[in-house]
Amino acid sequence: MSYLIDLISQDLPDTLSSAPETGPKRTLSPPLSRLLRRIADWRRNRADVAALRLMTDHNLRDMGLSRLDLEVISEGAYRREV
């Protein structure tokens, strides 16, 4: 598991590695790199939606959102009309 975390953190600079860097550097193949990036983006999106769901209705209204908007946001289809 530590090896995979090291590979992810090499390819995704925002990801923290739990193990110190030792030994030769290994690089990821482009398809694996894209897959890991998509997984990281998906996890980040889920965390953002979870944080929105914890907010009160008042806080959501302050941002111009409603509880109904959260479902659309979680699907990635939300576009704010300005």
Rank of each mutant, 00 (worst) to 15 (best):
M1L: 11
M1Y: 05
S2L: 05
L4M: 09
I5V: 10
I5P: 02
D6L: 02
L7T: 04
L7F: 00
L7I: 06
L7C: 13
S9F: 01
S9E: 03
S9D: 04
Q10N: 14
Q10R: 15
D11P: 02
L12M: 10
P13H: 05
D14G: 09
D14T: 08
D14H: 07
T15P: 01
L16E: 15
L16S: 15
L16Y: 05
S17W: 01
S17M: 01
S17N: 12
S17A: 11
S18R: 09
S18A: 10
S18Q: 09
S18P: 00
A19T: 14
T22C: 02
T22L: 04
T22N: 05
P24V: 05
P24E: 12
K25Q: 14
R26S: 11
L28Y: 01
S29I: 00
S29K: 10
S29Y: 04
P30S: 13
P30C: 08
P31S: 10
P31Y: 03
S33L: 05
S33Y: 02
R34N: 12
L35K: 15
L36I: 05
L36E: 04
R37Q: 12
R38G: 09
R38T: 08
I39L: 14
A40T: 08
D41N: 12
D41T: 09
W42L: 12
N45Y: 00
R46C: 12
R46K: 13
R46V: 06
A47E: 14
A47V: 04
V49N: 03
V49D: 03
V49F: 01
A50C: 07
A51Q: 15
A51M: 10
L52E: 07
L54H: 10
L54P: 03
L54C: 11
T56P: 03
T56A: 11
H58K: 14
H58L: 08
N59C: 06
M63V: 04
L65W: 00
S66L: 05
S66V: 04
L70M: 08
L70C: 08
L70A: 09
L70V: 12
E71D: 10
E71M: 04
I73N: 05
I73R: 03
S74T: 02
G76T: 02
G76I: 01
Y78V: 04
Y78F: 13
R79C: 06
R79D: 07
R79Y: 03
R80T: 06
E81L: 09
V82L: 11
V82N: 14
V82A: 14
